[in-house]
């Protein structure tokens, strides 16, 4: 059900003098929840994006279910990504779409279900998270906390086989953090793994099977 993800000897820099990730290995077993703990600015989000295949490493390999991700075709890469949910730290909602448009996009683009059914699902989720009144509004009119709620729903809608959570506590209400913990644990029960990066150790203790520490570009 879940993806088996492995990064092998990955290095990454934004400029030659600024090595962010240095020859790092990490294996995420099927259905496993792994936490990466690090202080701000040490490359947590960069490592998460490398594991999700959003950034091309300067060195090393990303292996997903036994396949070298960066040697796959664009279509195959997108097929894999469409099975993953990614919760961005800054929500990353598409600004020229409404809230419901943002949520409908992954469902309608891949035509996973009839449009009427996907609209019903989105409406139900927005009601559940108290966001229904913002349905037709652009993201710019929402607070950061509300945007992150929408980002959480979008990740849930996209992810069938793996979840990436980028600093999931930041900017979220206590209630939403509880829902998030519950969701991660429920997904684990059904065999879907997660990779979480954060600087809050307590959160990771509650939800992770194991925690690794990122320091000076290396995982300890």
């Amino acid at each position: 059900m879940s993806f088996n993800i492995e990064i092998k000897n990955i290095s990454f820099d934004y400029s030659p003098s600024n090595l962010i990730i240095d020859n790092t290995r990490l294996k995420l077993n099927k259905g496993e929840v792994v936490g990466i703990l690090a202080n701000a600015g040490l490359g947590k989000s960069t490592l998460l994006k490398l594991c999700a295949g959003l950034l091309i490493p300067t060195k090393g390999e990303l292996i997903i279910d036994g396949k070298n991700f960066w040697s796959l075709s664009t279509i195959e890469q997108n097929d894999i990504r469409s099975e993953m949910g990614f919760d961005f730290q800054d929500a990353a909602l598409i600004t020229n779409m409404t809230i419901s448009g943002n949520l409908l996009l992954p469902l309608n683009y891949h035509e996973k279900m009839p449009e009427q059914k996907s609209i019903k699902i989105i409406d139900d989720l927005l009601k559940k998270f108290g966001l229904y009144e913002y349905k037709d509004k652009p993201p710019a009119l929402l607070s950061h906390g509300l945007k992150r709620s929408v980002s959480f729903i979008r990740a849930l809608l996209s992810g069938n086989k793996f979840f990436f959570w980028d600093d999931p506590i930041q900017g979220r209400s206590e209630h939403l953090v509880d829902v998030l913990k519950q969701t991660i644990l429920e997904k684990r029960e059904s065999g879907i793994g997660s990779l979480i990066v954060t600087q809050y150790e307590n959160f990771l203790k509650h939800v992770s099977d194991r925690v690794v520490i990122l320091d000076k570009g290396k995982l300890i």
């Binding site: 664009t74 997108n78 097929d79 993953m84 598409i94 996009l105 683009y109 979008r154």
Partner: peptide, 13 residues
């Protein structure tokens, strides 16, 4: 704004 990354992450080219 990482919107392009979000689009890629939805499996959209």
């Amino acid at each position: 704004n990482h919107e392009i990354s979000a689009i890629e992450m939805m499996g959209i080219n």
